[in-house]
Nucleic acid binder design. Structure first.
Lengths: 345, 345
DNA sequence: TTTTTTTACGAAAACGATTGCGGGCAAAGA
DNA sequence: TCTTTGCCCGCAATCGTTTTCGTAAAAAAA
């Protein structure tokens, strides 16, 4: 089953012109008389001619599509980023091909391979939690594929990067908890190999240090799968609660970790914030109706997606090799809600 | 900036063969001697040859990509469906191009036009809330573009459709509320033009009828934008609460409506479920940590995405025109939580 | 009128892959 | 020795566009 569409050749035949004349007329070439142009344009309009994008791609050597690799679409942060990507790409005439790594290194490799062989013109990627080395991306980048990183970035590849200010976001979240009187603040975070994990950890530690609170490594728990596996988070929490001195607050470093932690604490019937205060990174639009409503570090996801796309398109459409790369750092917002307000206890 | 990939021509030159021989060898044609085949295959493997999919598309007249139109990716139901679509498409070698209608008819038309201008082999779509007529889709369908509908479907186009059992889902939700002792059950739903709205309304009404409760039209509120506009829902709730006899329960018919309603009721400090019980359609993974945890009608979103994709691919890959179309109806699940349990009041 | 310049268009070669068909060549049969 | 039969392989057309280059005719300059 296929459907035959009008081609440039049909127009040529219908109007008694040559293929090249029609092509030029459609593209408004000055070589074609105004008269002929109008005739062609009119015919094309009336018969709803649409150039075959595949033929154009082949000819031009580019596909006008960009690939996206995120760990999981079913997550408000990433779906909002994609929203941003889509909005820019759409009105610049690019298609967006989305793939998910599900936090798996293997899937990330196969997705990037697949996308590049499907000849996308560029790639926007946020690394998977498992990813330790970048060979697969380095290879593509060296071949000339434009890449833009966001959120979980690397500095092994010289290109544009766009991130939220993870350090500051974590610093403020931790500081907020300290201001609430918390002193044993646990940090539940993703894989230690991720840039976001390191930066947020830094911010957390610095806030503690600035408040004269000594950090306790037992209060820091890594979840290598970033909360995709509930048991992993469960295990982390159990360990935290079995410490001789229980934490009086938890700061979770990702969307999934935050909701899972909240859910687990609820299941364990631990009063939030009275026994344990909670602040989490999340872009969930429902954070305010959580029980309790969740104090959140919110990332400008839409904006990040838009920026990443603009940067990628500037790379793709640049005539000369780009040598100057930017790292854009956007501010997060701390939305204070019930889950952290010890004062109400 | 582009990167040159190895072509069939390069292989031919390197091995002193003709282009056609190489092509045939790669495709395992019987016309080519075993010896030559091995040589070509080995060279291709060693130099990581990947056929240019664009050239193949042009030749074959298909792109091996499918288009998806949903109203909004930033919504657990749709992101889960997409998850399903992606998983099937991926391992059948198809790319997925996702677009969002944002519940706008205009955007839906432009998206479908854009996708269909021969860049996709088929379309999976859930109609926007604004969509009243199908001309844009009928046109494409008549031209031969395979289309599969899911969730918000139409019967103006003869093709495969896949939906949850909306009637039954709504019936059970309403019945559950009735069993909790509720008698004035309001129904807050989307645009009346959507199939899901009509079916869920039916189920709701029938459950009332079966319980001998007379329906009250004042208790039924339509939100033409499906909750995308908070004020719309706000307005509906305000009207409900100003009725001489207030509702003692609300049944919301979509993801966004459910969370918005919960949020608004909270803001108005109306105790749930004691004053008003709440049951909502939602696929939010966080429904259990809402305040109160939300009794939900959950749709098999992942499954729906998978099925829709399998059906679409069968249409695309069918050799002869398909004349028999299916409407698959999947069961929903009622997850009972606090928001509806009057017994605990 | 002759020569030069414009104008307006067409022929053809790409882009990378697929495929029907024709033909060279060796082995086998006459 | 000459013809026949396969086996392998290359030629060339094709998918729909874009683009370079060549060239007739018309217009301008001589």
């Amino acid at each position: 089953m296929k459907f035959e569409a009008l081609t440039i050749k049909d127009i040529a035949k219908a109007l008694g012109l040559s293929i090249s004349t029609v092509s030029k007329a459609l593209r408004g070439s000055h070589e074609i008389s105004e008269e002929t142009k109008q005739a062609v344009l009119r015919y094309a309009r009336e018969h709803n001619y649409k150039p075959n994008p595949i033929a154009q791609s082949l000819k031009r050597g580019q596909s006008r599509s960009i690939g996206v690799i995120v760990c999981n679409i079913d997550n408000n942060f990433f779906s909002q980023v994609i929203n941003g990507i889509e909005s820019i790409a759409q009105n610049r005439g690019y298609n967006v091909i989305i793939t998910q790594s599900q936090e798996s290194y293997e899937k990330e490799v196969s997705n990037s391979d697949h996308l590049s062989s499907r000849s996308v013109d560029g790639l926007i990627i946020s690394l998977s939690a498992e990813t330790q080395h970048m060979d697969h991306l380095v290879k593509l980048h060296e071949k000339g594929l434009p890449i833009v990183f966001f959120d979980r970035i690397t500095d092994e590849i010289r290109t544009h990067r766009i991130v939220a200010n993870n350090y500051k976001g974590a610093y403020e979240a931790t500081k907020h908890l300290l201001q609430q009187g918390c002193r044993r603040i646990a940090h539940v975070t993703s894989s230690g190999s991720l840039s976001i994990t390191r930066e947020r950890l830094e911010g957390y530690k610095q806030a503690l240090a600035d408040a004269g609170v000594t950090a306790d490594d037992r209060l820091i728990k890594f979840c290598p799968h970033g909360g995709m596996i509930r048991e992993e988070t469960q295990q982390a929490l159990t360990e935290l609660l079995q410490l001789p001195e229980r934490p009086d607050a938890i700061f979770t470093a990702s969307d999934r970790l935050s909701t899972t932690t909240l859910s687990l604490l609820q299941a364990m019937r631990i009063p939030i914030p009275c026994e344990i205060a909670l602040v989490g990174y999340t872009n969930s639009i429902s954070a305010e109706i959580f029980n309790p409503s969740l104090t959140s570090v919110v990332q400008p996801a839409l904006e990040m997606g838009k920026l990443a796309t603009e940067m990628l398109l500037s790379l793709i459409e640049s005539r000369r090799p780009v040598t100057h790369f930017e790292k854009r750092i956007l501010d997060t917002e701390l939305q204070i809600r019930e889950s952290s307000q010890k004062s109400r206890c």
